[in-house]
Simulated scan of single mutants.
Amino acid sequence: MNDNQSIGVFDSGYGGLTVFKSIASKLPQYNYIYFGDNARTPYGDHSFETIYQYTLECVEWLFAQGCPLVILACNTASAKALRNIQQNVLPFKYPDRRVLGVIRPTAEIVGDFTLSKHVGVMGTRGTVNSESYLMEINKFFPEISVSQQSCPMWVPLIENNEHIAAGADYFVKKYIDELLAKDNQIDCIVLACTHYPLLVPKIKTILPDHINLLGQDDIVADSLALYLENHPEMTDRIARENKTIFFTSGDAQVFDTQASVFFGERVVSRHVALKASAR
């Protein structure tokens, strides 16, 4: 296993599968390992330190499986752990490894989707409270005004497969209304959680037609393709056998059933016990 050089894709649960689905479609030739930390999901309401420790443990586990490159397909982990890992862990412990997130690729292109220069961001409490999108978008587009809205009920609804039920409509409309009440000039909304694409059909029935809805799946896939093109030294380390292995820290049978909804095809996973799973 350790000789299998794969691209690692990590999420706190199932949401990262929406990103991985797009990555695997765009770059099918590579080997991948997907790891969902389902035993400790959701990350959104945990403290900064807890999210950092959980994320680091999962990244190091993927490194141990032979992944020279890991994608944090989780906005909360990208917001609260990525920078610390990149600046304080990789240079000293893993100088030949790389970890990338989902926030920067989105921030780099959001300006192409707004005419009013007023953008909304919808995410978990952890992502919103980190203000990572505010900071990243401001780096690339200082003229854009960003309003944020936390949506604490969306992930639980999706994780419990209740997002397709009529009862979910209330919470979809509630958070959209609260965001638009903050700024009625918003013409682009970023779905800053990889779970949220499963709510897109409901969101579109509520959202005014002039507002662009920006998901992250294709954005992250395109960004990874460009990264690999620009870093052949990394690309050369990744096996091209079109193989994928799924792992979860939770119950594998439960994961397989739910993951198939997110991934769009049958998923068969293996359970792995993390040291801090019971925390």
Rank of each mutant, 00 (worst) to 15 (best):
G8K: 03
Y14S: 07
T18Y: 14
V19Q: 14
V19R: 13
K21H: 11
L27N: 03
Y30E: 11
Y30T: 14
I33N: 12
D37P: 13
A39P: 08
A39R: 13
T50K: 09
E57Y: 02
C58F: 13
L62E: 10
L69K: 04
I71D: 04
A73P: 13
N75A: 05
A77F: 07
A79C: 10
K80W: 06
A81C: 07
R83P: 03
R83C: 10
N84Q: 12
I85T: 00
I85P: 00
L90V: 01
P91Q: 04
Y94R: 03
Y94Q: 08
V99D: 01
V102T: 15
A107I: 05
I109L: 12
D112C: 01
G123K: 11
T124V: 12
T124F: 07
V128G: 05
N129K: 14
Y133N: 03
E136I: 08
N138R: 13
N138M: 13
I144F: 06
S147R: 10
Q149N: 00
Q149D: 02
W154K: 00
L157S: 00
N161C: 05
E162V: 03
H163I: 03
I164E: 01
A168P: 06
Y170P: 00
F171Y: 01
V172F: 00
K174E: 00
Y175S: 02
Y175K: 01
D177M: 00
L179T: 05
L180M: 09
K182W: 02
Q185F: 11
Q185P: 15
V190D: 09
H195A: 03
V200M: 05
I211M: 12
D218K: 05
I219H: 09
D222P: 14
E229F: 14
N230E: 12
E233V: 05
M234P: 13
D236A: 06
A239H: 08
A239D: 08
E241D: 09
F246Y: 15
F247G: 04
T248I: 06
S249M: 06
G250M: 11
D251F: 12
A252K: 15
F255R: 07
T257A: 06
S260T: 07
V261H: 10
G264E: 15
R266H: 15
V267D: 07
R270F: 04
H271S: 12
A276Q: 12
S277Q: 14
S277G: 15
